[in-house]
Design a protein around this nucleic acid. Structure first.
Lengths: 124, 124
DNA sequence: GCTTGACCTGGAGCCGACTCCAGGTGCGAT
DNA sequence: ATCGCACCTGGAGTCGGCTCCAGGTCAAGC
C-alpha cells in the first residue's frame, strides 16, 4: 500500500496551487523548483513535497518577495540544515517588510476612504 | 500678495512626492496628469493642485491600482461633478480590493511566521 | 563670455515575471 | 488504428511601469 506516495500531474498541481502550467515550468527552469520527477514518458509528476514547497513560494510571492530573493531562499534550503539561521534571518527581514507594507496599505486606504467621504459630502 | 499662488519646480515636486522626474514626465505624457503649466522658458511649474493630485495618484498606486484604472479615474475627475457617483463607485471597489489584499497579506504572513517558528524549534 | 546645473524633447531600452508558440510525443477511449 | 488531450521542448514575445539617452535651451554666478 503506497498510499503516502501519491504523485500529481502538472494539471492537478496547477489546479491546486493556482500557478499556471507555464509558471510551474518557468519556476523549474530558473531553479526555484528543483528538477521535478518524471514518468516513463518524460512527463512531470509532482510529489507532496513539491506541492508543499510551492505553498511556501506562494506565500513569499504573494507577500511581494522578488524571484531573486526566493531563489536565494531556495538555495539555502537546498544547502541543508546548517543554513537554518540564515533562513530565519531572511524570513524575518521579509516579515518586517510585509509589516511595513500592511501599514502603508492601511495608511493609503484611510486617505482613499477620506476621499470617498468627501465625495459623499459633496453630492449630499 | 500672491502668497497662495506659489508654484513648484520639477525638482521640488520630485522631492516632495517621491516620484522621479522621469516618472512625473511619464505621467504627464500618458495623461495621468493634465498638461502642467510652463514658464517662459518652457519649463514645468507645478501648482499646489497638481501636487494634491499627485498625492492621490500615490495613494492609488501604492495600493496597487494599475495605471489604466488611474487613467479612468483621472478622466472622471476631468469630466466634472456629474461623475462623482462613478468616482465613488471606482474608489469603493478599489477599497474592497485593498481590504482583500491586506487580508491575504496577513494570512500569508501568518504562514511565514509559522515557518520561522518551525525553524526556531528545529534549531532549538 | 563661459561654465554649470536644472530643465527640455522624442524615442529607445530595460526589468521582472510571466505567457505564448510551433512542432512533437504518448496514452486512454471509441 | 485513430482521435483527442494532456503533456513535452526551446525560444520568442508580451506587458506594465518606468528609466535612460543624446542633443539642446536657458539663467545665474564667476
Amino acid at each position: 500500500m503506497l498510499l503516502g506516495m501519491s504523485v500529481y500531474t502538472p494539471g492537478q498541481v496547477a489546479e491546486e496551487t493556482g500557478f499556471s502550467l507555464d509558471t510551474l515550468r518557468y519556476y523549474e527552469r530558473i531553479g526555484l523548483l528543483e528538477p521535478i520527477g518524471r514518468n516513463a514518458a518524460g512527463q512531470r509528476r509532482f510529489t507532496q513535497d513539491d506541492i508543499g514547497w510551492l505553498g511556501m513560494i506562494r506565500c513569499l510571492r504573494d507577500t511581494g518577495m522578488p524571484i531573486a530573493e526566493m531563489l536565494r531562499f531556495a538555495e539555502l534550503v537546498r544547502a541543508g540544515e546548517h543554513t537554518i539561521a540564515d533562513r530565519i534571518a531572511l524570513l524575518e527581514s521579509h516579515d518586517r517588510r510585509v509589516e511595513a507594507q500592511v501599514a502603508n496599505l492601511r495608511e493609503k486606504q484611510a486617505a482613499i476612504r477620506n476621499k470617498i467621504g468627501y465625495y459623499r459630502a459633496v453630492t449630499g
